[in-house]
């Protein structure tokens, strides 16, 4: 009798601890947002929202300073979109292979290896990019420019003046987002009920037709979520892009931008926050930039979440 009572109290206590952990993580997010807001809002004393979002010049230490986010936002966008163009096809292809084609043994070895790629610290990616990948990309791009019979603007673009460029960041970010996309897309494909495949095959569809017409559409929401989480990872990545994109705060040109240095929002915050005098306009504007970044990743993650939940109801 007594023992049961102690057990019940213990259970209640453990439940309380677990619940506190859950509540704490929510409270932390709210506090971080409050902290960001408190330090970001004074920025509007020195710059209006329109000036910040539409300004083409980022000169935080000039007199008077210019706080235009446009080059930084477009820099982040260019690097992110570039990385997704590489990582989405490869990532989904790899996920389909692992879930649908590969024998179980191959899959059991290959998936952990892909996931291990996600555990490599970003500074290591940056270092590899700085020392090796950047130079390879520059050489390959120049060779392609010389060999291809393209229009002049393409030749100019491909003739990279420096190995530090948006494309170098994009390639490295693609490697870094790949594990996220492969892992989550593979899980989604794997959770498609076996009867769907059996049904399709029984109707006489080939394996490829089944993958294309049944399995992928059934796992659509999970695959979309994997891409969105990849976007979140790419937008928020800091160290690698700081090291390899060249940090030129210039609005990227439509034709040559991908092959020239750019600067992302994350790299700007990382490079400048440490040396900015506290409570100055520059300091607050950097927080505003951080707030913007927070809102972007928040929207991306929420979208991913909504997609996953909608998908769950479909089955």
């Amino acid at each position: 009798m007594k023992l049961r009572r102690i057990g019940r109290v213990l259970e209640w206590a453990i439940e309380l601890v677990i619940r506190s952990c859950g509540v704490a993580s929510v409270v932390f997010v709210i506090l971080i947002l409050a902290f960001l807001l408190r330090n970001a809002l004074p920025a509007f004393n020195s710059v209006s929202l329109g000036e910040a979002l539409g300004g083409r010049l980022w000169r935080p230490t000039s007199n008077p300073p210019q706080f235009g986010f446009l080059p930084l936002i477009l820099g982040s966008a260019l690097v992110t979109v570039g990385s997704l163009l590489i990582s989405v096809p490869i990532g989904i292809g790899a996920a389909v292979f692992l879930a649908e084609v590969a024998p179980r043994r191959v899959r059991e070895i290959a998936k952990p290896i892909v996931e291990l790629l996600g555990a490599v610290p970003s500074v290591v990616f940056g270092f590899v990019g700085l020392m090796l990948v950047g130079a390879w990309i520059q050489r390959a791009s120049r060779a392609a420019g010389d060999a291809l019979p393209g229009p002049d603007w393409l030749k100019t673009a491909l003739n990279m003046p420096s190995s530090m460029a948006a494309i170098t960041g994009a390639v490295l970010l693609a490697l870094m987002t790949l594990p996220t996309i492969v892992s989550i897309a593979e899980d989604a494909l794997d959770s498609v009920p076996e009867r769907f495949r059996q049904g399709s095959l029984a109707l006489g569809a080939t394996r490829w037709q089944t993958i294309r017409g049944v399995t992928i559409p059934a796992a659509r929401s999970g695959i979309m979520a994997s891409v969105m989480l990849g976007v979140g990872r790419a937008v928020g990545e800091t160290m690698t892009v700081l090291m390899v994109t060249g940090n030129a705060a210039v609005v990227p040109s439509l034709t040559t931008g991908l092959f020239r240095p750019v600067r992302t929002m994350t790299a700007t915050i990382a490079a400048e926050m440490g040396e900015t005098a506290h409570q100055t306009p520059h300091f607050h504007v950097l927080f505003l930039l951080g707030l913007l970044l927070f809102l972007i990743t928040f929207c991306v993650n929420t979208t991913a979440d909504i997609i996953t939940h909608r998908g769950r109801h479909e089955h």
């Binding site: 000169r59 530090m164 700081l242 210039v250 240095p261 600067r263």
Partner: peptide, 11 residues
């Protein structure tokens, strides 16, 4: 006069 925006700002 200011630095051109296209300068590469290295660490």
């Amino acid at each position: 006069r200011e630095f051109a925006p296209s300068i590469m700002a290295l660490q």
